Computed example of a mutant assay.
Amino acid sequence: MPAGSGSAPRKGSAARREPDAAFVLDVRSLGRRPGTMRELHRTVTTVERIGLDLIAVPVGAEIELDLQQQAVSEGVLVTGTVRAPLEGECSRCLEPFTDEVSVYLTELFAYPDSTTEQTTDDDESYRMIDDTIDLEPVIIDAFGVELPLQPLCTPDCAGLCPECGVRMAIAGSDHSHEILDPRWAGLAKFATASPGDGSPDEGAATAADHSADMASNMTEEK
């Protein structure tokens, strides 16, 4: 499934693919007697990315299938758990992270010419074809619903500092920036000036000393 495509529409029938391999199940041995069951435990290696823009099952990942197939009057009911590793990018701090997804499936694959097949549209239910069922579109749909559109590396991720862009997880809770009104930026230079460098305070002190000396000299002359 291409990145960012989300939940795919249901496919009316499985494409002709190698039976009983990867996501395709051959159900001929199950038969059609209602109530007949068969367990399925399989590991499938992905050949394409499955998921959303910021989080997905990567290419080459192993998807674990732990399923039960049950024959019912209208088709084959597939239930069970599908687990897979995830690779994502945090939507707040943009850091890569890994996770795992687990979904529970309950899906009916309709028999050809069954009432379900005849009374539903192709995008409303899944179909069997040549006694096989294709789980790939089911899993794509399930992952598309389960995965978050805005994934987080941790639930309490503080994101990035809006001033300098550093990750707040690294900067710490005491990280801050002093923001000055630009109208006072020029005066701030004088406030931080060192003694003797021509600051206003030094000039005021020099003028005061000069006035005191002049007053003292005038007193002595009298």
Score class of each variant (00 low, 15 high):
139 I>W: 00
14 A>K: 00
44 V>A: 07
94 L>A: 13
48 E>T: 06
134 D>P: 09
145 V>C: 02
99 D>S: 15
153 C>S: 06
81 T>D: 15
131 D>R: 03
210 H>V: 14
24 V>T: 15
102 S>M: 10
67 L>A: 00
152 L>H: 04
166 V>S: 08
124 E>N: 12
183 R>G: 07
136 E>N: 06
177 H>D: 11
45 T>K: 12
142 A>P: 03
158 A>Y: 04
71 A>T: 05
106 T>P: 05
133 I>S: 00
6 G>F: 01
221 E>D: 12
116 T>D: 12
217 N>S: 14
141 D>P: 00
215 A>H: 11
164 C>S: 05
46 T>F: 03
32 R>N: 09
173 S>D: 15
124 E>T: 10
213 D>T: 14
28 R>N: 05
207 A>Q: 10
163 E>C: 05
217 N>V: 13
22 A>M: 01
18 E>F: 02
55 I>Q: 02
19 P>S: 09
222 K>G: 12
158 A>N: 05
75 G>L: 09
96 P>T: 13
132 T>V: 11
188 A>K: 15
184 W>T: 08
172 G>C: 05
44 V>C: 06
84 A>I: 00
94 L>G: 08
86 L>D: 09
39 E>L: 14
150 Q>P: 07
30 L>N: 05
170 I>M: 01
200 P>I: 02
114 S>Q: 10
26 D>C: 09
108 L>E: 01
201 D>H: 02
61 A>T: 13
140 I>A: 07
162 P>T: 05
130 D>E: 12
218 M>D: 15
39 E>T: 08
211 S>I: 11
104 Y>S: 12
219 T>K: 15
186 G>D: 14
202 E>Y: 13
18 E>R: 08
57 V>M: 06
13 S>T: 06
186 G>Y: 02
10 R>Y: 04
102 S>R: 10
166 V>I: 11
89 E>P: 04
62 E>N: 13
221 E>S: 12
189 K>Q: 12
49 R>Q: 13
118 Q>S: 13
197 D>K: 13
135 L>I: 02
2 P>Q: 10
199 S>F: 06
127 R>V: 01
179 I>V: 15
156 D>I: 01
19 P>G: 11
53 D>H: 08
32 R>W: 08
60 G>D: 09
168 M>I: 05
221 E>F: 11
183 R>Q: 11
58 P>M: 10
99 D>A: 15
133 I>L: 15
186 G>P: 11
33 R>T: 13
158 A>P: 07
207 A>D: 08
84 A>M: 00
103 V>A: 13
149 L>E: 12
68 Q>F: 04
48 E>C: 04
205 A>F: 01
186 G>S: 11
21 A>W: 03
93 C>D: 07
216 S>R: 14
48 E>A: 09
129 I>P: 01
40 L>Q: 01
198 G>L: 00
22 A>T: 02
26 D>H: 13
83 R>Q: 15
182 P>V: 10
71 A>Q: 03
108 L>A: 04
69 Q>R: 07
219 T>G: 14
5 S>P: 04
176 S>W: 05
69 Q>T: 08
135 L>D: 00
133 I>C: 02
118 Q>K: 14
45 T>E: 13
57 V>C: 08
161 C>S: 04
208 A>D: 13
